[in-house]
Design a protein around this nucleic acid. Structure first.
Lengths: 243, 243
DNA sequence: ATCAGGTTTTTGGCATGCCAAATACCAGAA
DNA sequence: TTCTGGTATTTGGCATGCCAAAAACCTGAT
């Protein structure tokens, strides 16, 4: 018999640690509710529905099969994330960002990513940098990004996340992911737009080249300008979503 | 008489809107508990106590005179902020950052602040930029920062916050404030150190000069390098706190 | 004295129920 | 029909109490 996880491991004992399948806590209802609600909010396309989206604690607790307590705790967490806002005796409303807020977020993203690029030039391994090209290996002059927008958009996000991960700075990674979550619902109608995908791919490759060349200033500049370009684009052409 | 915020303003009605003292909700216990706990955590000098700091729900609810429910919701919020971590059947522990995490945070701060500097050169008013000098008007070659470290340290933080506010980008402001909260407890033994205050003041003035000159690239560079300098300093001399 | 085995206590997780504020609803008067 | 006043309902805020997992404690055998 295997003795699983003793507080103090007995001196002499043949330990057969096979198939210890993680007796782990399996996350609480609170965390399950948090993940479920977060995912539901992210895939609900808030910017297409005209009237404000409301959540109801009791309805949610019934739908998820738990009491209101863990639901309320999950809501409190989501409120910290800025995804919802609970108005005292009115209800819980899913937050809709203004165009200005989206633009501000993208500029913050540009700041974080350019710093990541800077750090990468001094620490990342050559092979890891070069591997960034793989995200776009299915696209070229024959198979153009603007003809496969959905697919290219996913590769786009994956590239940016992989890029920032190379900085080996978890704070940059986490903060950027938070921003991407907020911008994502909005992304569908902006990042994927044809008029930007045309310039997007060359810019990405330019960033990779600067990283490979270990040109800190250039890599930083290219990463910054690329994302600032998106911010400028949204600022100029993002009206239709915020009527 | 003005008609004060009616849902539908009645046509004819002489409304005496004197002494409408805001019947506002006065924040819930949940939010009060959140603020109280947050402040308590921030002023407790986590890095000086050797053993991990634990919190107890029941003790807290008794101390604050409320039930465990709002306390638990506040804890959930603080956990989202990264200030505490609740371990299932073990307790709630106040998170201690590693040196690497602190350095990573400061680098993220550098990224955000350099972007703020960039934006300021294109949007802020001259007088607002010049006003940044006031934070240091009490310091000069006669009254040196290193002789009034506590006071200079406060001016330092205030300067950085005011600087970022000038960007008029609320996302940058909020993210930086979050970072400062985490770095603050640590600040006492680093930012305030004499060997850095010597170079700090001239660098600050250099940033202001670049902003006034509307030199986008230079302002960004100086803001970035100044804070990256702090990161490098902590990385090199911050050992003693993380034994 | 040491340690296995069992018991008590502690601690977070969660369900339940009541409360008050805000709203929705409805009936009666003008 | 429209407006007013009151009532029922909805909704988040919160207190309370039980539960199970862990830890702390205790006890008796070796």
């Amino acid at each position: 018999m295997a003795t699983p996880k003793e507080t103090k491991a007995p001196p002499a004992m043949a330990e057969a640690d096979i198939a210890i399948v993680r007796i782990a806590p399996e996350t609480s209802f609170k965390n399950k509710a948090y993940e479920a609600l977060k995912e539901a909010i992210l895939k609900m396309d808030i910017y297409t529905t005209p009237e404000p989206v409301m959540l109801d604690e009791r309805a949610l607790s019934e739908r998820l099969g738990v009491s209101r307590t863990p639901i309320r705790e999950a809501i409190a967490m989501l409120e910290q994330d800025g995804f919802v806002k609970t108005v005292p005796r009115r209800g819980i409303v899913v937050v809709r960002r203004t165009k200005t807020e989206i633009v501000d977020m993208i500029r913050a993203w540009a700041a974080l990513e350019s710093m990541a690029a800077r750090l990468i030039t001094t620490t990342a391994r050559k092979k890891d940098i070069t591997a960034l090209r793989d995200f776009f290996k299915d696209f070229n002059s024959d198979r153009r990004p603007e003809d496969h927008i959905e697919e290219y958009s996913k590769a786009n996000i994956a590239f940016h996340q992989a890029l920032i991960s190379l900085s080996e700075n978890q704070v940059l990674v986490d903060m950027t992911n938070d921003i991407l979550l907020h911008v994502r619902g909005y992304r569908q109608l902006t990042i994927g737009r044809k008029d930007r995908t045309a310039t997007s791919l060359p810019e990405h490759l330019g960033i990779i080249e600067a990283l490979e060349a270990r040109d800190t200033e250039l890599a930083e500049k290219r990463a910054r300008d690329h994302t600032l370009g998106l911010a400028a684009y949204v600022e100029a052409h993002g009206q239709e979503l915020f009527t």
